[in-house]
Simulated scan of single mutants.
Amino acid sequence: MLRWYKPVHLSKLRMTDVPDMPGVYVLLREPDDISSVLKIGPARSLRAMFERELAIPDKGRGLHPKAMMFAETWADAEEAQRLIVAYKRKHGRPPPMNSQY
């Protein structure tokens, strides 16, 4: 069972709130709405993934995440795939930023 952390706003001021550990992350459109999932993915370093999201410019992106929630796990890729499959089963499609189209 994964232990999820509360959503962290995508801000340089919050970078130290994210551990430098492997895990799975969920990018959210709205920080207060955990159902506003944009992307689910694995990360060898949750903090590095947080930093990468901060570095992506807003222009031309269409969907812009405002927060990230995460869970620490060594089986990051397997957990992320499991979560994507569960999301797809519930919603009939993968999260918008996980889509290949």
Rank of each mutant, 00 (worst) to 15 (best):
M69V: 05
M68V: 09
V26H: 00
Y25D: 04
S36M: 07
G62Q: 03
I34R: 04
W4L: 08
A67V: 03
M97C: 05
Q81D: 13
E30A: 12
A71Q: 08
R47N: 08
D33H: 09
S35A: 06
E78I: 09
P31W: 13
V26G: 01
L27N: 05
V37L: 10
P31T: 03
R14F: 01
L28V: 11
P65C: 12
Q81G: 13
S36C: 04
P7G: 10
I56T: 11
P7M: 07
E72H: 10
D17A: 15
R47E: 11
L63F: 14
R44E: 04
G23N: 04
R61T: 13
K6I: 07
L63I: 01
F50D: 04
P65N: 11
D76F: 12
R47S: 05
K59D: 09
I84H: 00
H9I: 13
D20G: 07
R14V: 01
E79R: 05
R61Y: 07
L83K: 02
I84N: 01
A77G: 07
K12S: 10
G62M: 09
R89A: 15
L2Q: 06
M15G: 02
P95I: 12
R44N: 04
D17S: 15
F70E: 13
M15K: 14
E79W: 01
G60Y: 09
A80L: 06
R47H: 02
P42M: 02
K88R: 13
P94R: 14
G41I: 03
H9D: 12
Q81C: 02
K88C: 12
M15Q: 15
R89Q: 14
E30G: 00
I40A: 02
I34L: 02
M1Y: 08
R61S: 14
K66Y: 12
M69S: 06
M97S: 04
